[in-house]
Design a protein around this nucleic acid. Structure first.
Lengths: 216, 216, 216, 216
DNA sequence: AATGAATGAGATTTCATTCAT
DNA sequence: GATGAATGAAATCTCATTCAT
């Protein structure tokens, strides 16, 4: 076309770029609440402050919304994991302690806990997504932790244990916290002191893994 | 479970009384595969070898099928937990070891792992079910384990720790195993050696909890 | 399953077998009236005396209904063409006369005229169907007529003409009649005397094709 | 056609006045391809190099686009028919020959063949359009041809036949050509020699209609 | 004059549930 | 007791149309 009108006024531009994010935020909340199948596009739209049709301007289908959501948070998770790994200085237990505390705080505060929960819930209907998540999140996190543990063994800080399984042991209480918060927390009157729980976890891990002759 | 009116022929009778169970078995399989919302009554019926209409002779609705399923397996779980508790003899760690091994073997072999997985998946749509499960399964199991741990502390086998949280720490790797088997296992080429994992768990737990001066 | 109940009572059986036909009849009428895209499943259902859902018990989609319709009438058409060919006795012009009269009467009376009209209308959206129709109906009919004409030439009844094109010339007024009846007839007050039109067609064809020296 | 308000720049002005035409051209192409109902405004806009909104500056609705299209081409057709009629000199068969050749070439080369095809396709949804087309195009063309034929009969060139039906016989192969090109041509490997077909048509018509004692 | 984001009515399709047989 | 054809509410998705910019 001949002449380019000063198109996309600022307000629109901002809106257009913000929309997909707004929709994904809304979708996260609704999927977290209902699961994939029971989530209605109308609900997501309403929560995002738009109408059904608008979602289809940005995403091809409900399934695509879900996958975008997963992909977005995976990249976040990966960034986090990578950053943690880079931070490694001081003793192995110090690192583990800091790492676990970070994980815990994310699990306890971020809206994004809903995502792994959804992946777990919907693995039957989206097997590719479960694969994707395992490879991109679980395997990489496990590899990172294994590396840290191996280094700790080499340094004589940690006794001789299989790093793979220990990595998973480190993560297990995180998973429990995640499931608890997303599944049972709001049905429970007696509050769960996640901090104390995680502290206990670190304590048991420390005593359970340290090499003989290492001080507490 | 629903009472079936008496009939004359033996074979018939056996069949009729078996029906609800067959349907529940089928439902477990389908729910495990698809989750609640995505499971179709037609699939359940087909797997049970009946037609859709028949299901409604025994259950009022899809939701009711689900609840019956949960109730049935809960009673099993409770029975198991209670029995375990009664068996308590020997050292605390011996008990924990045996208990965890039992749990593990159930998680690894029983079809019923699907149940907690579904509870997790569908908690958003069936909050009452999550409440029911927490009260009837989780709280009771936790209470039982807490009791065992408290006794261990009193006996001087276990150092002074908060029994509640330690109970949850004991269960966390079970949860991880459960999630793994129901969510990621079939997407993974490299097999997960659950036995080794659980052994490692018991080992770390032992060293991490034993009172000072106790032998390994 | 153990015992086969005297299932499918007569009434149901008859219904079940009649349904697809009833639905296709209704679909023919609605598609003829609105074309494919504008035809609503609800309309088809209503005309067939069932509800939307029922159609999906017998056909996977709207498109599938359409294709079934086409397939059904193609086999009818083929049967007719084949039968006509078998009937060939007497002079070539006698055969043509009878054949064209049959075609004409079908075009003028049968509900099935709607089908070629729909194929024409929807060729853009269903190219495979246009191909199918051309190969199965048009090509075969043309081949049959070409054969007849060739034989007529060999016998010295028809002058030397390209049989392919003459076959199409024979059919052209049929097409015009078909289009007229399905498209313009109900908008017209002055009635179109199809019989006279077709008679004129046969007359012109006879004089236009007969070999020199042949009597009228 | 809609009047456009004056503007200053020459280029702009040319553009603005060209717009409706460009849109109609695009619409013709899209309607030809998909039919009316399945044609999307977005497609028309894209083909015209504008956006959906722009179309609504010139036309009130999709239906209005369609009607404008029909009106535009009808006036062309009528003009052509009228001009042909005026040209009448020489023998009746010469006129028919020239007229049919003109028709044929339009059917074979012009984009506008799509128009009657669409009228046929959408007659169910737009009965007024079918009426309009019949009155403005078909009836007038038929009347013109009838006149020519009557004159031919009066002159002793054509034997005594009903002019109305013969006029339609003249047009029938045109219709067949039109349908062929718009519906089956692109599905066919073996090309259709329209020229030879039309020549055959003229030949048969000549022999079939000429008065006794007239030379070929 | 033109844009294009947003709308929302309406279409197709699915499936839990009913009920005549 | 069992069937399975039929239902119809509710979901997803499409697209003609509007309107702020």
């Amino acid at each position: 076309m001949d002449q380019i009108v000063e198109k996309n006024s600022k307000t629109w531009q901002r809106r257009k770029q913000a929309r997909p994010g707004e929709i994904l935020d809304a979708a996260l909340a609704v999927f977290a609440d209902k699961g994939f199948a029971a989530a209605r596009m109308e609900d997501i739209a309403a929560k995002a402050g738009v109408t059904k049709g608008t979602i289809y301007l940005y995403f091809q289908s409900k399934e695509e919304v879900f996958k975008s959501l997963a992909r977005q948070h995976v990249s976040d998770s990966l960034a986090m994991a990578a950053e943690e790994a880079r931070r490694f200085e001081g003793s192995t237990f110090d690192f583990l302690s800091v790492f676990l505390q970070r994980c815990a705080s994310m699990i306890l505060t971020s809206e994004a806990v809903a995502l792994p929960k959804i992946i777990i819930s919907e693995s039957g209907n989206f097997p590719e997504l479960a694969v994707f998540w395992r490879k991109e999140v679980i395997d990489k996190t496990t590899a990172m932790l294994s590396g840290v543990i191996s280094k700790g063994i080499a340094r004589g800080e940690i006794r001789d244990v299989p790093p793979e399984y220990v990595a998973k042991l480190c993560m297990a209480p995180m998973l429990l916290g995640l499931i608890w918060r997303t599944t049972f927390a709001h049905t429970d009157d007696t509050p769960f002191d996640y901090e104390a729980f995680m502290a206990m976890h670190r304590d048991v891990l420390h005593r359970g893994l340290r090499a003989e002759g290492q001080a507490a």
